[in-house]
Amino acid sequence: MVDTIFPLVLRGACVRRRGTTLVGPIDLELGACASTAIIGPNGAGKTSLLRLMHGLERCDGGTVDWSSPAAVARKRQAFVFQTPIIMRRTVLECIAYPLAIRGMGKKRSRELAEEWGERVGLKSMLRNPAGALSGGEKQKLALARALTTAPDVLFLDEPCANLDGRATKEIEKILSDACSEGTRIVMATHDMGQARRISEEVLFLYKGRLHESGRTNNFFAAPSTAEAAAFLRGDILL
């Protein structure tokens, strides 16, 4: 049994599409830190980097390696998309789905799904069609679905985009609980406040390149690159 899939090591990793480099080359090592925020302006490559790390995007150059074999590492990750992908099932069935495809029995997977539904505040809606949920509830459903498998790492692509303050707070609470239970969070976000609140480490991307990385407090107090400083000042980066 492999204890951890970390560190994740990227060496010259690139994502290209139709001749254009979206991300990279990037050299990066993600270790045992509890949570990382990926920040940067629109089009910086945050989503592509997340997808590359998770394996949803093909690595067009360089390498992306976990410490454990790819097949093992893949099973110990989960991803929450910016726009939740909601299956045409009840809330309970949606949450239980990843357990079912891992071969867990129906009774046990439903028990776990009910437990997670309750934890994220969807207890009263478990028998409702998932498509009928509000935006914030759908995102909570996506989080519960991702966390039922107790992943080693949870990738999140702007999970609170378009949500109000209350829903954002509830989701951040779920994330910090998951963190304290041993799930590593890697999250792309536009919300600097959220990056400060949740992350211990920040990766600043600009034009597909990793311009700066470091402890969250240090980064926000004294960014070391001109681009990061300009971004934090609120300047428009072209």
């Binding site: 998770h54 949803l56 893949r74 099973k75 990750q77 989960a78 991803f79 998309f81 992908i85 299956m87 045409r88 099932r89 789905y97 990843p98 495809i101």
Partner: peptide, 25 residues
């Protein structure tokens, strides 16, 4: 097209993908 990223992310096998799509569709 709607489920692609989710099912790939969850590491569903091809048989599981087809079964899921038939059930949900």
């Amino acid at each position: 097209a709607e489920y692609h990223d989710l099912l790939i992310s969850m590491n569903a096998s091809k048989r599981q993908r087809i079964a899921t799509l038939i059930y949900d569709g």
